[in-house]
């Protein structure tokens, strides 16, 4: 009896939710959204530029893996002479991603360098290519909300990113296990997982910058060049400019007290952190090198009594939390601006 009542109630509820969904679903159309995502994803996979970039990234990974493995083997040999059990404390597995012998850069350097390029390549022609091909007005005359297009493009590109970088990261791990013969600890695995998530957030930032430029600039060449210009600026010139500024700020003749030195140093760091590249490199360092305990300057008083040892994962995450938030915020801001300006734009082909 009670059961029957309950059943009735449940069915009543489900009917209700269905009707609510139907009302809501009048204008939302998830299958159309998925159709756009699917089509964009197929386009990405089939396009030459993504194929070429993918191959370059793959080659870079193989190269960095090779150098990492040769230099880690040396490290193991040296460490092995001192103590057999040191392996886990050294976080050898993480060094797969960070170590290099100088001939080829390490995995994180490659990702930090090629990742943004990949993001830009995915995003720079998102909207203006539709406009120039004349497909934009045709697409938007279909019964879909306008934001589906930009959202679907973002989702498709992000999906490709997640797929590529997770498969790359897992492949590197797999080869590491095969060749080195050391399995990663659970903490190491988690660190790598977080590192890969960080990579995706970082690339998503550049992707969104590309999308933003593709909305703002009508020509694809302009948006590609301006995105790359921004990337080069942050990659190369920004640190130079900050160095210049810091030289005058940290002039030893003007500095009188320790607190002033710390203060000025803090200012320089804050300036550096306006660059997404710097945020990314700081975060990766902390995530993949647990022995790094701080990002700012430390005074002797602060280090006295500290036990030198690796930080646990939770502490590492805590340390880079502001950096992570900053990167996510920058990504969202870019997307928000792109979204808003796209929604307000005129849909004329000329």
């Amino acid at each position: 009896m009670n059961l029957a009542k309950l059943k009735n109630k449940i069915s009543f509820f489900s009917v209700q939710t269905e009707s609510v969904q139907a009302e809501k679903g009048k204008n939302s159309n998830p299958s159309a959204f998925m159709a756009i995502v699917r089509k964009e994803f197929t386009d990405y996979i089939r396009s030459w530029r993504i194929l070429i970039l993918g191959v370059i990234i793959l080659l870079a990974c193989i190269g960095s893996l090779y150098t990492a493995i040769t230099s880690i083997s040396d490290a193991i040999d040296q460490a092995g002479k001192e103590a057999e059990t040191l392996g886990s404390d050294l976080y050898l597995f993480l060094q797969l991603f960070t170590v290099s012998d100088g001939t080829l850069p390490s995995f994180i350097t490659f990702v930090g360098f090629l990742g943004p390029l990949f993001g830009i390549a995915l995003g720079f022609d998102a909207i203006n290519s539709e406009r120039n091909r004349g497909t934009l007005s045709r697409l938007l005359s279909q019964p879909i909300p306008r934001d589906y297009l930009i959202n679907a493009k973002f989702v498709a590109a992000l999906l490709l990113n997640v797929l590529l970088f997770f498969s790359l990261g897992l492949l590197v791990m797999a080869f590491g296990i095969l060749i080195l013969g050391i399995p990663p600890t659970f903490e190491e695995f988690l660190r790598i997982f977080f590192f890969l998530c960080l990579c995706i957030v970082y690339i998503a930032f550049w992707l969104n910058l590309g999308i933003l430029f593709s909305v703002v600039f009508k020509s694809q060449a302009t948006s590609a060049l301006s995105s790359i210009a921004v990337w080069i600026f942050f990659n190369v010139f920004y640190s130079m400019i900050i160095n210049l500024v810091s030289k005058s700020l940290l002039n030893p003749e003007k500095l009188t007290s320790v607190s002033e030195v710390l203060n000025k140093q803090g200012t320089v760091l804050t300036l550096m952190r306006f660059s997404p590249n710097y945020l990314f490199s700081e975060s990766t360092t902390i995530l993949l090198s647990p022995n790094v305990r701080s990002l700012g300057p430390l005074t002797v008083e602060q280090t006295v009594g500290a036990v030198a040892g690796p930080l646990p994962l939770s502490q590492s995450l805590l340390l880079i939390w502001p950096q992570l938030t900053g990167l996510v915020a920058a990504t969202l801001i870019c997307f928000a601006i792109a979204y808003l300006s796209f929604m307000r734009q005129e849909i004329r082909t000329n």
């Binding site: 091909r133 004349g134 007005s137 082909t349 000329n350």
Partner: peptide
């Protein structure tokens, strides 16, 4: 959106993928 469900539109500079 409901209008667009009922109306077919051929733009002047039509393009396809």
């Amino acid at each position: 959106i409901e209008v667009k469900r009922r109306v077919g539109y051929l733009p002047d500079n039509i393009g396809f993928y």
